[in-house]
């Protein structure tokens, strides 16, 4: 019997970054092609924010602001932030599903870049994120939201929100690795994101809250991000909230990316 250690073709020694990017694209395709079979998934992503927009605009709008349309103009940028944060949970949910179902093991047994499975998922989720921002903005405009800036402002709003979501996705990855089943990722999302986004200036003006709460609302990154988006979409960009939002994103990434990566390494 000939020795089996001299095979043909000769296996390569490592994955080049370029090939790794191709793996990432293939794995992103894998996450997105599901939408083809289950188009409802696109609506799943957006149904909650749509309900929020409709309910808040027409139920609370008249009471909080002068008219539902006025309220919509105030609230929509903030709802976009809330929606983006909820959408980051899909990353952890999908990752946990892969881990518990064994798909992650199969991928890791293949000669692909070690970072590609995670990168592919995050890339696909960023595409879904962009879709749901666009959908929300579109619906808002149908209901009476008006962009007061221009295409650059809208582009800036997209870029800022996507950048912040990418940073927040690391929290989702960490949760996705630590919990035992996918549903727990969503429970975490509700428990943290609901209070976080409601104790902000997204739905009501800060001044209407008690003083102790105002102190928190003013430093809540959700408020800062909502302010930045209001500027980019309605009243003209303001560098203060934009820079602060980016710094928040950077801070979150710096803290949670290493924790998440370490947790992934440990779990597998």
């Amino acid at each position: 019997m000939t020795t089996i250690s001299a095979p043909a073709p000769v296996p390569t020694r490592r994955v080049s970054p370029l090939v790794g990017i191709r793996h990432t694209m293939t794995l992103a395709w894998r996450s997105l092609v599901q939408i083809k079979h289950n188009p409802m998934e696109l609506l799943d992503l957006s149904i909650q924010p749509l309900m929020f927009v409709l309910l808040f605009t027409y139920v609370f709008g008249g009471a909080i602001a002068d008219s539902p349309t006025d309220y919509l103009r105030f609230m929509l940028p903030g709802i976009m932030v809330q929606n983006a944060l909820f959408a980051t949970m899909t990353t952890g949910f999908g990752l946990n599903t892969d881990l518990t179902k064994g798909v992650f093991d199969r991928l890791r047994s293949l000669p692909i870049a070690r970072w590609a499975p995670l990168a592919g998922r995050i890339l696909a989720d960023t595409v879904k994120q962009a879709w749901s921002i666009a959908l929300l903005l579109g619906i808002g405009m149908v209901l009476g939201f008006r962009i007061g800036t221009g295409p650059l402002g809208v582009l800036g709003a997209f870029a800022l929100l996507l950048a912040f979501s990418l940073a927040a996705a690391w929290i989702s990855v960490l949760v996705g690795v630590l919990v035992s089943e996918p549903d727990k990722v969503q429970i975490f999302g509700f428990m943290v994101i609901f209070p976080l986004t409601f104790t902000s200036n997204v739905f009501v003006p800060t001044e209407s809250m008690p003083g102790w709460l105002q102190a928190w609302v003013k430093v809540n990154p959700v408020s800062t991000l909502a302010d930045a988006l209001r500027g980019l979409l309605v009243s003209g960009p303001e560098s203060g909230p934009i820079v602060t939002s980016l710094l928040w994103g950077l801070g979150i990434a710096v803290v949670f990316a290493p924790l998440a990566v370490r947790a992934v390494m440990r779990r597998v």
Partner: peptide, 17 residues
């Protein structure tokens, strides 16, 4: 990396999507 190019894995914990 070389090992991964010559193996296949199936079973309890390696699964399909």
């Amino acid at each position: 990396h070389q090992v991964r190019q010559v193996i296949g894995l199936t079973g309890q914990y390696a699964s399909v999507d």
